[in-house]
Simulated scan of single mutants.
Amino acid sequence: MTPSWTFAVGRDDLGRTTVADGPAPELADGEALLRVDRVGITANNVTYAVLGETMRYWEFFPAGPRGLGAEWGLPPLWGFAEVVASTVRGVEPGQRVYGYLPPAGHLVVRPERVDAGGFRDGSVHRAELPSPYNAYRLTTGDAAYQAAREDLLILFRPLFFTSFMLADQVADNDFYGARTLVLSSASSKTAYAAAFELHGRGPRLVGLTSPGNVAFTESLGCYDTVLPYDRIVDLDLDPTVYLDLSGAPGVRAALRECLGDRLIRDIAVGLTTGIPNADAAGEVFFAPNQMRKRRRDWGRDGLDQRFADAWQRFAAVAAGWVDVHAGAGPEDLRQAWLEVLAGRTPPRVGHVVQL
């Protein structure tokens, strides 16, 4: 039987890692086997692990069936996989899919709602988890797919979906009446993709970042103003919405002190510092909620086409903003994980690993 492996991290210490070897899983009726092919490691994946308990991210790929104890977790990744075996009509060996994948050699899925665009994993343990993470898109039926830009899709697509939905929600609410939108962690991919979508549509965009990332963030051209965190006092006293992607308590406190009641909305979007920010913010943005609204408004095909159009515009520009660092195998996956976890990855760098 074909050998397989699984990379796992300590649920109480994300810097503790292990690789467990084992045989490739066998299939039951109604299942298909995916060989995980090419994945990315970004701060987004660290977020899944940090929020693994509270947001149930550990439950997508349980460690137990892979021979690992309860102290281990599998941080979900995004990327491409190949169907290598299937008992399901319409899901055929050789098909290539994009979706939510474990840091492992293989994944067993139970395809449902199979159509020309792909399928959903109907495995029992995923039934109560957020449905957008259970979709697997065939490259042949994906309006956003371009073979030459696979690495961009790996690195940016889940982030860009969040950015696209965030920008859409802000615009859908008439920018909450703000004249200024402030985004923290402005050099992060999720932040500047949202800024790309929002730029020129009304409010002034201000990006907050660390002093060492100011020049890079300014070079993107997505923000009207870029400030280091220690210059928050230079903000104009406009009605302001804060889109918090950093999770840093000190930044929020400084912003509230500077703006006072001019801070009319405080929205937690994610975190890149490893400090959960949901409790301190006024509200939390969750992309699937806005996605469900737009599916009602536009229909599934309408949402997919709008996303694909936005992605193609963004990808054409973002190709010049990222340097792909490509690795191969479990050890390079581990090294990329540890580097991103420690915050050592420069904003221009994106880690992609061929498995």
Rank of each mutant, 00 (worst) to 15 (best):
Val233Asn: 11
Leu101Met: 07
Arg231Leu: 07
Ile154Arg: 05
Glu92Thr: 12
Glu283Cys: 05
Ile264Val: 15
Ile232Ser: 07
Glu331Cys: 02
Gly105Ile: 10
Leu153Asp: 03
His106Val: 09
Val19Pro: 02
Val9Gly: 09
Leu181Ser: 05
Gly67Glu: 10
Leu259Ile: 06
Asn45His: 14
Pro211Gly: 12
Ala328Glu: 13
Gly10Pro: 03
Arg35Asp: 11
Gly260His: 01
Arg120Phe: 14
Arg231Gly: 06
Ile264Thr: 12
Phe119Thr: 00
Gln290Leu: 10
Ala281Pro: 04
Ala191Met: 08
Glu112Tyr: 06
Leu243Tyr: 03
Thr42Leu: 00
Asp261Leu: 04
Phe7Tyr: 14
Ala316Lys: 07
Glu339Thr: 15
Arg204Phe: 04
Leu227Thr: 11
Gly177Gln: 13
Phe156Asn: 13
Gly118Lys: 01
Pro347Cys: 01
Ala43Tyr: 02
Ala81Pro: 08
Asn277Tyr: 10
Glu218Gln: 15
Leu341Asp: 07
Phe80His: 10
Val233Lys: 14
Val46Cys: 14
Arg113Tyr: 10
Ala195Gln: 07
Leu205Val: 09
Ser188Met: 01
Glu82Ile: 05
Pro75Trp: 09
Ile232Arg: 10
Gly79Ala: 03
Gly10Gln: 04
Trp311Ser: 04
Ile264Gln: 08
Arg256Thr: 09
Arg89Phe: 03
Gly350Asn: 06
Glu128Thr: 15
Glu197Ile: 02
Tyr176Leu: 15
Tyr229Asp: 10
Tyr48Cys: 00
Asp13Pro: 01
